[in-house]
Design a protein around this nucleic acid. Structure first.
Lengths: 221, 221
DNA sequence: ACAGGCCGTTAACCATGAGTTAACCTGTTT
DNA sequence: AAACAGGTTAACTCATGGTTAACGGCCTGT
């Protein structure tokens, strides 16, 4: 699950990002409305978390443009305490939910998940890399039409690589995202090995590449 | 049957809740419009009972947003004696029925059931997974043409899995939906076991799959 | 009112295989 | 050839999920 978080308060943004990452989301940040709008239009996310009070372009305006452009992504608004008007406006403009600051983090996560779940019929949950198809909903992975079984750890890792397909992902980044903070271990090597055995062995075209000194990248050849 | 009751008068809310529970409904409460709206959007109910006079956000506004968001849940309005305008407005906005306070409880239940029943005709109440047919309306489940008896708990769980067929449903999610919030128990394991014995045992093709570390999924093989 | 049975729930136990570690191997870089 | 990055393998442990039994409450029928 990949989330775009648009929030100008960097401390708060960082805190939310970390919290979400602990809940196994992948998070990208934008610090003002314009940047947020650009990213939402350019890349694909499972949901956008949008602060209302933003520099350059406020959240309501961002939302308005997104909807006008028929960008069908679930939007969760962050509103100041009491901003009733903004909320109503936001909901009428097509926001999917809102939460008032300050909020209980677990509630925030619950709402975010709910918002994503409601969209599941609309937005596809599958990622395609060459002849590899990863379906996060069904927890299944197919290569060349063949379903391959993965343990939950294996799935997390390849799913994370898939969310970041075409980008080199470093070993510590994987550890951080999948296992939690600061393990000093060779566990990623081990899992990459397992995964390769399952999806690359016996195929002419590899999908997982090692970038020495940098990390791993999942991409079509 | 799960009902969301949005009513700010706590005495009345509690009384209605108890009455409904005696009629074997499961009832959740919200005490203002905002909370009610949130719950209606986030969780799934068979019907929403909505007071019109509510703090923070009135019932009409709640209804308006619900319908705008295409949340297709039957809504029964509670109106003050004589509030004719609100009623008309409510019905135009897509409420399914209204009842004026004070009301006869048996009439209230009858209307509520009617409202739910009417919806069943609209939204198909049967879910098909392979040779498994689940009819939420008739409360029956058939596999390969054979009717199988289920207790009400068993039915709730398999029905919830069926509603989410093709998606992995986590253990806590099932607990939340079927049993209420935050139980720490192995009850889902036990019920999955019961259900499997009834629908999968003796069949070559399984329908319920365990995804270790993630949950359960109901799907055709 | 009483007995019996069903349902919901909890608890205990068991088996499996996933998660992790460590040791060793291979290939690349300097 | 030493140092280093990454790959491979095997072994251990322990969490997860499966299964069964037991208990209490509620409803039913007598």
């Amino acid at each position: 699950m990949k989330i775009l978080l648009v929030e100008d308060d960097k401390n708060l943004a960082e805190a939310i990002k970390e919290g979400l990452e602990e809940n196994s989301f992948v998070v990208e940040l934008a610090f003002d409305g314009e940047e947020g709008l650009y990213m939402a239009k350019t890349f694909t996310y499972n949901a956008v978390v949008l602060d209302i009070m933003l520099p350059v372009m406020d959240g309501i305006a961002v939302l308005e443009v997104l909807r006008k452009k028929k960008i069908n992504v679930p939007v969760l608004l962050l509103t100041a305490r009491g901003g009733l008007e903004d909320r109503i406006k936001g909901l009428n403009l097509g926001a999917d939910d809102y939460i008032s600051k300050p909020f209980e983090f677990s509630e925030f996560v619950a709402r975010l998940k709910a918002v994503i779940r409601r969209y599941k019929g609309v937005a596809s949950s599958t990622i395609v890399i060459g002849d590899l198809v990863i379906d996060a909903n069904a927890h299944t992975i197919k290569r060349a039409g063949r379903t391959i079984d993965f343990s939950s750890r294996e799935f997390s890792i390849i799913h994370y690589l898939a969310l970041n397909k075409g980008r080199v992902v470093s070993n510590p980044e994987i550890v951080e995202h999948v296992f939690g903070p600061d393990l000093e271990t060779n566990i990623v090597k081990v899992y990459i090995n397992y995964i390769r055995n399952k999806i690359d062995r016996g195929f002419r075209k590899k999908l997982i590449y090692t970038v020495r000194g940098a990390g791993y990248i999942l991409k079509e050849p």
